[in-house]
Design a binder for these strands. Structure first.
Lengths: 210, 210, 210, 210
DNA sequence: GATGAATGAGTTTTCATTCAT
DNA sequence: TATGAATGAAAACTCATTCAT
């Protein structure tokens, strides 16, 4: 292994460790309240160093979201690709897959919305924006595909598969936010997983051909 | 009508006009980007005056959410109270009621999440926090009640009614955010209402007793 | 005198006092080394207050230059308008007029060059840039006019009057900078006025028709 | 040629290449806006390496000015030494000599003034400051000498030769700055050379003994 | 000798909020 | 009651410079 190779690896490791620190801070405080100073402290670096790895706060934040999207797509791909499951089981499986994403990065969804600001978007590298769009499109597409299969297999009613994907995704993200909200008042309560199960189960039944 | 009574009325009118201005600015820019200065300008007042009517920025913001919650509860009450509709129709009716809230204040939900910050909550008048909780609990309760009715009438499967309310609310708020997100890239696309319809319809079917 | 009138006057006075403080600091340290913090201290205000009166550091700086240009134009107008002086005396008079500008604001010329940065220019209000150009054009025009008069009166050789104005202005600004430079090593030395006198005298003679 | 000799040569070559890169960057952006990072990139080196050859940014900058002064002195020496030219022709010749300096390094004069800051001077090696003073004194002296010759030859009026040198130098540097300023608004306009010619011609005539 | 990586020390600017009038 | 004016407190970001390798 050459020197430059090791350098590369170290650099990536540092990048990752910054992202991990940022995840903690952003999750705990939200995008605006989190300061680069805090993130730097959490990463045991100086604030200036953060800027060696990320163009600015927005960029750091976007990278986090990218990572989450990549994980989401990976989970969905695995689920969609399983040959031992029928469409119904796969829809029920969304619950596990999505919940897995939530566990990996519990509060990041909560801040996704920061990215929606047009101003924020403009400050990101075009490549980053494009990648975010591509990945989220891919995730939605994978979900829709499961519904399409179910219809083709005659198990689901004919509905617009992409609309069902929207329902699933909307339901998930809404429940995550809702969970967070509830936690503020009762930190122990964990209703997300069972509620998600219920939602998916109801969707499966609701799509069933009589 | 006494002098003090008129004063009261004028005061409330001014309060309302500030809130209207604030709604416009917050909706357009989001909580953090909106400045008190801007809001004051929109209300044709000086920034200092705003503080005569609201404790601080958070309080002004919370008041807006309160107003939206009141509107939501009103809509749901009306729906729940209608005797010409059965549980199934009422669940389908959630779509209209919730969409009405969205139309009244399209972006306010988008910022609701700001309120979740513990720090923010601490800065609110305790009465405000309490009222927000009471109203959102009431709204959820009204939704749950419809499901309960349906079960009692033997039309719906036995599930936890409150969990179904969570599903409905999560689905709604998630789709609103999702809609906003999509609008950034294609401002004309409006998929919220039909998707909401589809979601409610699927829930109704999914709860049906075979 | 109404309240608003007094307010206006106070506001202008404060603006002026900030500019005076800024002049001191900029002159002593140059544009880049001078900090808004220092200027604020010199003006006995908080840095934030400066931004109530000037858009940003560049704007404050440009305002200073504007003021100097206005003074310069005033001096030149007075000189050019005197009917008791012939062209030769007026050219000699440039020395006094220009030296007066220097005394009014000894080091400001030194920093004029900061304004040349295209980036700086872009951050100024278009109106400011326009006014700067207008005034400096006017000053040059007034100088050129004196030479033109001399030629028309048959006292000066035929040369391009605007070019002579450039010579006068270039000579003045160059000598100011040169003076500052020398002062660094020998603060007492004051050669500007006599040198300027010599320069103007030589120009007058150099233009004389044999 | 020994090894150490070659080392010396290589070292000097690298120093020169850094200075060339620095000249490009400083000229394009001015002292403050230019970053060591940029200069290093232009020199295809790492920023750290720059510090092996120059004490700091100021020192690098001063070295550039030194180089320019050396060039200026060389030009003036050549001019002053020509036996085929009389004092009048030599004064006219200043125009070419000075313009040559300008062409060699069009914007360096523009930034010379940075060096005047006392703070900057303190950060320079004492040797550098001394050399700058020595060279600029020498340049002025060479100019003055030409005037002195003219007076001794009975061609020029009796004036203080050093003062005339100041006039020439002031006129030159002032016009260079003025040219740069004009270029901002009309990049094609080039008035420096003819104006310099006019200035020198007028000085020659102005000094003529009747 | 050369450098990749890291950082300390600033600086401008923004805004919610206050207070004398 | 209303407000013009003022400001304290931050926070993002920059860059010359250093140092272990």
């Amino acid at each position: 292994m050459g020197v430059s190779e090791r350098r590369q690896r170290e650099k990536r490791a540092r990048r990752t460790s910054i992202m991990d620190a940022a995840k903690r801070i952003f999750s705990a405080k939200g995008f605006n309240a989190a300061t680069m100073e805090e993130i730097a402290q959490a990463a045991e670096l100086s604030p200036a160093t953060l800027y060696l790895y990320f163009k600015n706060k927005n960029d750091l934040y976007a990278s986090l979201n990218l990572r989450m999207l990549e994980f989401l797509v990976k989970q969905l791909k695995e689920l969609a690709g399983r040959e031992d499951l029928g469409p119904r089981e796969k829809v029920r499986g969304f619950s596990d897959a999505l919940y897995g994403v939530y566990q990996e990065d519990p509060l990041i969804l909560f801040n996704v919305f920061h990215l929606q600001s047009t101003q924020t978007l403009k400050e990101l590298a075009a490549r980053t924006t494009a990648k975010i769009n591509q990945l989220s499109g891919q995730a939605l597409g994978l979900i829709a595909q499961v519904f399409r299969e179910g219809m083709e297999a005659g198990q689901f009613r004919q509905v617009h598969p992409m609309a069902m994907a929207d329902v699933v995704w909307g339901c998930f993200s809404g429940l995550v936010l809702w969970e967070d909200n509830k936690k503020l008042f009762d930190p122990k309560k964990q209703f997300l997983k069972p509620t998600l199960d219920l939602a998916m189960e109801t969707l499966v039944r609701g799509l069933a051909v009589e």
